[in-house]
Simulated scan of single mutants.
Amino acid sequence: MSCLSANDLQRIFQKLDKNGAGLISIDQLKWLLEKIGFQTSIDDLQALMGSGKCLDSIDFFFFYDIVIEKQKKGGDEASDDLNDDGDLVKAFKVFDLNDDGFISCEELQSVLSRLGLWDEQNCQDCKRMISMYDMNSDGLLDFEEFKFMMLSDFS
């Protein structure tokens, strides 16, 4: 899992906090995790979050840090999960909106926009991100290219 910047996390939090109350619920957090391909139960989230039913932005940042640290400490366990390809297939399907087996620039931009991570002023970033891992230069990411991109972010 690649690390997000504080600005990225703040934008995600603001997108989730639709009513502007400065809080996101466990349900909203679960929705976000499912959108990026992680299935979890409300009970698991409550165990991670403690007794609170909502997170403010600071708690959200701490939650993110806990997830990243858990992933890093997973060591071999995390590598085994990635070698299984199950989670990577789920993540790939999140981006492959038309289910054609490829991630296009438009699909990448659409998913990043939904997550609040897309800045309309940086239109060329999408093409640049794909071209970095597009081994056959077709302008699309197939699953193997996506897998290489995700695994290289873990090292």
Rank of each mutant, 00 (worst) to 15 (best):
Y133T: 06
E120L: 04
Y133G: 06
S110H: 04
I103F: 11
L112N: 03
D134W: 05
K127R: 12
D119P: 08
M129C: 03
D134A: 13
S131K: 07
M129E: 01
V111N: 07
S104Y: 03
E106Y: 11
I103V: 14
C123S: 14
D125I: 06
K127P: 06
Y133V: 15
E106F: 11
S131A: 15
Y133K: 00
C126N: 02
M132E: 11
C126D: 03
V111M: 13
G116A: 11
C126T: 12
Y133H: 06
L115S: 01
C126I: 15
M132A: 14
I103K: 02
S104L: 14
Q109C: 13
E107I: 09
C126R: 07
I130C: 10
F102N: 12
R128A: 12
N136M: 08
M135C: 14
L108Q: 01
I103N: 08
L115C: 03
I130N: 02
C123N: 11
V111F: 07
N136D: 15
N136R: 06
N122Q: 09
R114Q: 13
R128K: 14
S104I: 12
L117V: 03
E120G: 00
L117C: 08
G116S: 14
L117P: 01
L108C: 04
D125S: 03
C123M: 11
L115Q: 00
M132S: 02
R128G: 11
Q109F: 02
C105P: 08
M129I: 12
L115V: 06
M129N: 01
M132F: 02
L108G: 09
Q124F: 09
L112W: 05
C126Q: 00
F102A: 13
S113T: 09
Q124R: 08
F102C: 12
L108R: 06
Q124L: 11
E106V: 07
E106L: 08
E107P: 08
F102K: 14
C105I: 13
L115M: 15
L112Q: 10
E107S: 04
G116F: 02
R128P: 00
L117F: 11
M129F: 04
M129Q: 02
G116R: 00
Y133I: 08
M132G: 04
D134F: 02
Q124H: 10
C105T: 14
D125E: 11
K127S: 13
C105L: 12
D119A: 08
R114N: 13
D134E: 09
I103A: 05
S104M: 13
L108N: 05
C126W: 06
R114Y: 04
D134M: 04
D125A: 12
N122H: 04
R114M: 14
K127C: 07
S113H: 04
